[in-house]
Write a protein that binds this DNA or RNA. Structure first.
Lengths: 248, 248
DNA sequence: GCAAAAGTGTTGTCCTTACACCCATGC
DNA sequence: GCATGGGTGTAAGGACAACACTTTTGC
């Protein structure tokens, strides 16, 4: 019987294989790596992103994403969660790698590679107790004067969000646990920058059958209060295969 | 008038800003970076991927993706194009970043971060003149015994391809310039692992209006030859906004 | 003439869209 | 009672799925 091993020994015999993998890896150029988190929130009918003032002199006054270098032997997902946790105190939030940025001159201090992560969280769950470096929610609009290539990263992540929201009910991570259909619709309308028919929107989401009626109603609204719903993430995860996305 | 600058000076005055950005960057852990290219081809009604034998002793006989470390001051896209060019001699091919892999133990020689790129090319345009390390097209099926985490990378890229093919006519990069509708349908059927109705498939693609009838016909087929078409990438790029994707 | 696949049209179903009226609440 | 937005149903149109027959070529 001819196994992979035998084939390998036949074909490899006259090649010089690398023995010392550590020396090999040492010989590669080494590059500093950071993660940058684009943390989206939704508040007051606006999409917002969590920013700080850059603490680098040459970017004085400019806005910066939340980032940090990757620790030794730290996986990047872990690094992104760490940044998120250190800044917001939150743990079990949505987080996804989006893209790696590598322009050689993107950092004034020399080559630094950064991996952008997107996170979505409910602004109400979080009080921003630590507001070092003017950590704050900044409207996604009118964002100019950002440090590094952070504007570009933000643009890519925002485009990613819009696209991803159509194929996955991501956006629900931006809402409180209980929400009205109006809030849900506002979310889609604002982020995707479209107008939707209220009745058809309603039908679409009810037909998906992932909304649980809490039996509760809105409060403090100057009109008839709407029902509050929860999203059944478990049911969604379970029936995921049959989810074909949202289209407007 | 209150400018960003004035605000900055007010808010930043009592902070210690970092002056020496080079020292900052030097203080970060430095990590070796590689790119790995998942180069897809389509031949004989099979999806294939370009592989070599690993040249690392401990992976003797195992298959490996085409990769290389990133040169100093080389953008990653550039590194991926370089790998592609060195191995296939091709320049103007589709290439897209997919994901960055960072498990600390993914490389036996120590921590190495790799950025996976996907490329699609027409197998016929390329003769694989350089076949060092047994460079060859390997069927996407029955892939076991791969070096590093390359099986995982391949799986992620294959999933990416299937998803991306539904929202963008990527797949056409895998076909020769002139192709029959049967070849196009085979491509979709094989990659997405579905059966499609020939007549509806035809209608769908014609209605998109991106196919140009070359007036030529297939040759060397043991049955009635089909018309050959070209894809109008320019027209597609121009009308992109109205493209809503493909759904089956 | 037989096998094999190309090429074409129609019909029913379902999903999407557009749209109008009544209802509950705050003021 | 009036303004505001919540809640519901329906009809028309468009897209998609299912499906059968004729045509052209190689052998």
């Amino acid at each position: 019987m001819i196994t992979e091993e035998i084939i390998a020994s036949l074909t490899d015999d006259n090649r010089n294989l690398i023995q010392d993998v550590h020396a090999l890896v040492e010989s590669y150029p080494h590059v500093p790596i950071t993660v940058d988190c684009v943390i989206f929130g939704f508040d007051n009918n606006e999409l917002k992103v969590l920013l700080i003032r850059s603490d680098i002199e040459m970017y004085r006054g400019k806005w910066s994403l939340l980032g940090d270098f990757a620790h030794d032997d730290e996986e990047l997902d872990g690094a992104a969660y760490r940044v998120l946790h250190e800044r917001t105190g939150m743990d079990d939030v949505f987080l996804e790698q989006v893209k790696t940025f590598s322009k050689p001159n993107r950092h004034p201090g020399g080559r630094v590679l950064t991996v952008a992560y997107c996170s979505l969280l409910n602004i109400e769950h979080h009080d921003l107790e630590i507001t070092d470096n003017e950590l704050h929610w900044h409207s996604i609009k009118n964002l100019c004067g950002m440090a590094f290539d952070h504007k570009e990263i933000l643009d890519v992540c925002y485009a990613w969000l819009r696209k991803r929201m159509l194929e996955h009910p991501l956006g629900l991570n931006l809402l409180p646990e209980k929400f009205s259909l109006r809030e849900l619709q506002n979310l889609y309308e604002v982020i995707l920058d479209i107008k939707l028919d209220r009745r058809n929107f309603r039908k679409k989401f009810f037909s998906m059958d992932f909304l649980i009626d809490t039996g509760e109603y809105e409060d403090d609204v100057p009109h008839r209060p709407g029902r509050l719903y929860r999203f059944d993430f478990n049911k969604y995860e379970h029936n995921k295969r049959r989810w074909t996305g949202i289209e407007f």
